[in-house]
Design a protein around this nucleic acid. Structure first.
Lengths: 111, 111
DNA sequence: TCCATATTTCAATAATAATTGAAATCTTGG
DNA sequence: CCAAGATTTCAATTATTATTGAAATATGGA
């Protein structure tokens, strides 16, 4: 992962609402959630502000969206999330083997 | 970890210089690096700007500093780093066991 | 087609963070 | 104690990001 992508992703997460959205999506798994469900999960309205924050997460590469009927579903971009975590912990302690993130979450391994 | 602490930590990392400082410190391990060495590792001057960024990392809980002789050493705050990574991946996919960060780096386990 | 639900866009304003350069502090060897 | 290296503080300026509210678009069912 490039430094600029990581900065963009971290900047997107450095906001209370977006961080909660991200965590909600991580919990939701590969299927994701509609905007309405996200708003519900956060206890906020599905308004322009939420839409803006969702767009920011997508712009930073941390989420993807897809249209399904009249709903739009957002879901975590797991490969980018894993890249980001790896980038943060890379070569920890000079590579002395004290543990490094490989894949924090791989939805394809879910039961 | 509380949401506000996570936002502060992510905000501190969402900056090119600070992110590189953090990664440098992660690589350096528990002993950390003096400000001069950090500047060297980044290819910048040890000036007010770098000092400000280091203070930001400490303020966000991601690093700690200690004075040793006429040098000041900064090092990663590993427990906070691990908390942050756990916070981001918590209950991934609803807890279906697709892998979650436990401890990305535990310097006490280093060889 | 028309309506209701779902979601986004936009522009103005407000708030926060980054950069600069110069001066100040702190530490130890001579 | 003084000088030099190491690091920090501060205030002014500039740049970036967030919030608000209202209007716009898109979709599927009656």
């Amino acid at each position: 992962m490039e430094s600029k992508l990581a900065v963009a992703a971290l900047g997107a997460l450095a906001h209370e609402t977006r961080l909660e959205v991200f965590r909600l999506l991580v919990r939701a798994g590969a299927g994701g959630l509609s905007v309405g469900r996200i708003a519900e999960g956060l206890g906020v309205e599905a308004n322009g502000r939420l839409s803006f924050h969702l767009k920011e997460l997508v712009g930073a590469g941390l989420a993807v969206s897809r249209q399904e009927g009249r709903f739009i579903y957002y879901s975590t971009n797991y490969p980018v999330m894993n890249d980001l975590l790896r980038y943060l912990t890379e070569d920890c302690c000079g590579g002395l083997g004290c543990g490094e993130v490989v894949d924090a979450c791989s939805p394809e391994k879910c039961v």
